[in-house]
Design a protein around this nucleic acid. Structure first.
Lengths: 186, 186
DNA sequence: CTCAATGCGAGACTTAGTCTCAAGTTGAGC
DNA sequence: GCTCAACTTGAGACTAAGTCTCGCATTGAG
């Protein structure tokens, strides 16, 4: 099964990355330990970074769905905040795992970079819904407000995550995210 | 002179990247056309991306300085907006050049990724000043507000830049940036 | 003029990522 | 149970980025 293989490779890679660091782990090593060839590994995951970032694709869809499900009368910023509950709930379900994952993410430049690319896709998934709520016509790409709002919300999410890792999860992510996103309405 | 060599290599690389695309241009080709060895090129620029992104370091410092020079009574968001005038002035001075530069940036994933890394450094340069203005104690890294505000402002800048490229520079960047950053205070 | 420091080029080496080809696996239809 | 087609895999060559070492040249201070 495609999904099973991928999940297993991701598990192996995650362990190795946390044990010895992302850069000191080669794709060959991951392939060997996961019991498949280098070539096959690259067929399942486009890049080394994707091995531990593929799931973000699905998470992005979940967030976008949650956003679309928010009531129409809710203001965009509030709707975005609530859509992120998909993530905060994940954090609270597996705090330790999430913490080491985020730590690895934050101090590995190439992973940070790819993660940002994934968030750009999240942005593309969410922006149309925000544009709709703003009453912006979709054929006016020069209106930067939808992208700006979504990207800013994601920036708040990143800032909150960084703070969460910095305090080792002592302050709940929801609180930090409220503080970050609340810095605008004060 | 170090700076002279670098500027010349950057010029050559910029031309090649725009002519044939970033990915279809090899570092060897740039080195050959610029008249220096591959090894030397990598001594001046850490990566291929840096060849056209090194200057962002200095621009970041300029923006941070501009931010620090804003009056104390100005609200953080407004101060950030004004600090970006450093950039909008650059855009207006060389519209065509900036346009093709931004176009290349936006449709080359690896450049986008590195550009984001540079902006993270900008964020680190600006955040302390915003923290000061918020009266946040610097030894409380779990306060996500300074990072959130700065990152959100940069997100607005990116959204505005994207819009500016999308309309081929028809609407001034300052207008788009005002619109993007104004989406929060409405 | 000498010596030390610095900068450069040559070239080997590692690793990510792509591509091709041949062998194996699976599954539908007979 | 058999066959053929479609898909998957592994082996291995290949490209290109980035690192490292070493030996040579240039230069600047004394």
């Amino acid at each position: 099964m495609r999904a099973t293989i991928r999940a297993e490779v991701t598990q192996v890679a995650l362990r190795l990355f946390i044990e010895q660091g992302f850069d000191r782990t080669t794709v060959d090593q991951i392939a060997a330990e996961a019991g498949l060839s280098r070539a096959s590994l690259f067929r399942h995951f486009g890049t080394k970074e994707d091995i531990v970032l593929v799931d973000l694709e699905a998470i992005g869809r979940q967030i976008a769905d949650a956003l679309a499900a928010r009531p129409d009368e809710e203001r965009p910023w509030e709707a975005l905040r609530r859509a992120f509950d998909v993530l905060t709930r994940m954090n609270e379900a597996e705090p330790d795992q999430t913490l080491s994952y985020l730590r690895m993410l934050q101090d590995t430049p190439s992973l940070r970079a790819r993660h940002f690319e994934k968030q750009l896709r999240w942005q593309e998934m969410m922006a149309p819904e925000i544009a709709r709520r703003l009453g912006a016509s979709p054929d006016r790409p020069e209106d930067p407000r939808p992208s700006a709002l979504v990207a800013a919300a994601l920036a708040c999410l990143d800032a909150a995550s960084t703070g969460w890792v910095a305090c080792a999860g002592a302050v709940p992510l929801t609180v930090l995210l409220d503080r970050a996103m609340g810095a605008f309405t004060d």
